[in-house]
Design a protein around this nucleic acid. Structure first.
Lengths: 125, 125
DNA sequence: TTCGTATGCAACCGATTGGTTGAGTAAGAG
DNA sequence: CTCTTACTCAACCAATCGGTTGCATACGAA
């Protein structure tokens, strides 16, 4: 179901263990073993988490002898920030409009408060 | 597994249909039927999506006769933004440190050239 | 070559997810 | 009251998820 990048990123970060891994990689690169150590799950489980993070573009991996160090890719955060910023702006805009309506209602506050409010038409994601 | 708020929010937004619903609610409040109409899924399915969004704190719902209008709660976005900002800052910080190391290496670049740097994989997409 | 370390891959399992259909509920209209 | 509208709830189902175990692989060391 999660086919696009944004879906993969959000799905990846929906797991606390994976967010924890991201937190540790933000401090510095680490191997699978190092990442697995603080948890009481198998290394294969952590390896799976890393595959999810990698598919989401959140981490990249290189080779160092038999180790596969993981590196946090920070650019993906920009994608999320951009997505978020859009709705924050829209929410603020809506808030401003609501304020305006309220102010207008105060000014001429006799009868007739029928809604000139929003019926929306959808946007896409 | 997704018990905390952040997990619920990310999980909720991992679905393209739910992000779409958020996009439409950002424009203005809507009923379940209005939200379901553009998709070729049952209203029950949309109702389930809305329950997920509600549990994540992303939407609230009121009552208007037999209708249940949905309203986007923008505050949750602050939670995500805060989470994101933390890693963006850390990434920048790391980047600055790497720059410093590189600069230091340039300054004393006579003999002795083994890298004490982070091995890091190339940039990305 | 053989051994140990670090990791990946595949198969399996129980819980969750996104969808369905069908029945039930809340409220205005006739 | 009954009918219709607008939903929710409950049961079910296939697919996915997070975990496991067991085996295969890549590489350095002995």
């Amino acid at each position: 179901m999660a086919d696009d990048q944004l879906s993969r990123v959000f799905a990846a970060l929906a797991d606390p263990t994976r967010r924890d891994i991201v937190a540790r990689l933000a401090v510095g690169d680490a191997t699978v073993g190092q990442l697995a150590e603080p948890y009481d799950v198998s290394m294969q489980a952590v390896s799976k988490h890393l595959r999810v993070l990698q598919d989401a573009g959140l981490v990249s991996r290189s080779r160092d002898a038999q180790r596969r160090p993981c590196h946090l890719e920070a650019e993906v955060f920009d994608l999320m920030t951009k997505w978020l910023e859009r709705y924050r702006r829209q929410a603020e805009e809506r808030f401003r409009r609501l304020d305006a309506v309220l102010a207008a209602m105060n000014e001429e506050d006799d009868g007739d408060q029928q809604d000139t409010t929003n019926k929306q038409t959808g946007a896409a994601s």
